[in-house]
Design a protein around this nucleic acid. Structure first.
Lengths: 204, 204
DNA sequence: CGAAATTACGAGTATTTGCTCGTGTTTGTC
DNA sequence: GACAAACACGAGCAAATACTCGTAATTTCG
């Protein structure tokens, strides 16, 4: 078992180092995924010795946690934008546009985001909260759908929400992986896919 | 570097062992993925010592290769069924049904299939042929689409094929992961998603 | 200044894991 | 039956890697 990190009064230099290390970790995670990312590589990327890394993070998991926490804020605000109650009455294409946009942006702005919130190669400790978050998103989508198709049974509602999420997740990968210049067509296609799937269920 | 496997006259017992080992590997790969699967675990699952495993396979990669080869046959026949030229004139829902069915079946019949043909955590040596295969599938889908929408530009054709493949792959995961009893609704949903996406492009 | 705390180093440790090797058993062939 | 080849074992090697520890520099603060 790795050593615990005692409470400690960080000085400015230390806080900077933690940011550097988190940045480095984000890069490395984005490049090779959580499992294959070595702590030594993260330290090296940050221009620091392995020992220094462990002055600030108890273990590899703790680094991912710090990153996740940093992302959580961004994700929260993206969700707030995406699930604006005012959208309920919008025509389907606009609704999709508004819900998708913030999520794409947050993924583009934070490389390594997908690596952390998707990864199948993470320890249970970190995967569990992520799954919860994912479930919450599905739930909120189901609500939006329910508002537009009140007579749909709850089971079908949930299935639809799950599938829509999955379509989004799959194509999101392509969108963020594409070079900036070729991104738009993929985004357009993502919207069309969601629209084509949802329109028969909840109407335009 | 791991030792090479010299040519060797296998006896019946040996060939059986190789099957057992491949079966065990399929299970382990399906459960934890390629990267996290340990050769010792595979040997243990087959009820055999690590040394014995290496009597038959030069290294971990070789096990995956053997499995991939075994699957390739099944995959080929699935493709042959899925891309029957006679389907070109079918109404869209039937076309989708016929193309999807064999692919789902082959995935259900072979656990570990997805783990091998999907995995982001595989060495380049194994990932490369898989990517090629994937590209080929996209190409064939593009052909089918072209037959039905002759005036669509090639670029759009390709994008559509890629997206359709991605939608399929994403939902396929859910379908095979679901317990047999709950599988049908997901398959239905998969069809609806593809239909919704493709109909506006190539008509019913 | 001077002591305590924090930051930094990097060689080294413990563990995991792909894989080997010496040894013994089983199978096929004459 | 005898000999060689194939099969099997499992302790253990070598490399990778998460993490530690002794030591030393820097910062804080009275």
């Amino acid at each position: 078992m790795p050593g615990q990190q005692p409470e400690r009064r960080r000085q400015a230099r230390g806080r900077r180092r933690m940011e550097q290390l988190a940045d480095a970790a984000a890069e490395v995670f984005a490049e090779v995924g959580y499992a294959k990312a070595t702590t030594n590589a993260i330290a090296a990327r940050a221009g620091v010795s392995p020992g220094t890394l462990y002055q600030f993070f108890a273990n590899k998991e703790a680094i991912a946690e710090a990153l996740a926490q940093r992302y959580q804020t961004a994700l929260q605000s993206a969700h707030d934008k995406a699930f604006d109650p005012g959208f309920a009455a919008l025509p389907l294409p606009e609704l999709i546009e508004r819900m998708i946009q913030p999520m794409i942006e947050v993924n583009l702005a934070n490389p390594g985001f997908k690596a952390l919130f998707n990864a199948a190669d993470m320890p249970e400790r970190l995967a569990a909260p992520t799954r919860q978050l994912h479930q919450a998103v599905v739930g909120r989508i189901a609500e939006v759908l329910a508002a537009r198709a009140p007579d749909l049974p709850a089971g079908q509602l949930r299935i639809t929400a799950v599938v829509a999420t999955q379509i989004f997740g799959a194509l999101l990968g392509t969108v963020v992986a594409a070079p900036a210049a070729e991104r738009d067509p993929w985004v357009t296609e993502l919207k069309r896919a969601l629209q084509g799937y949802l329109e028969p269920v909840i109407g335009a």
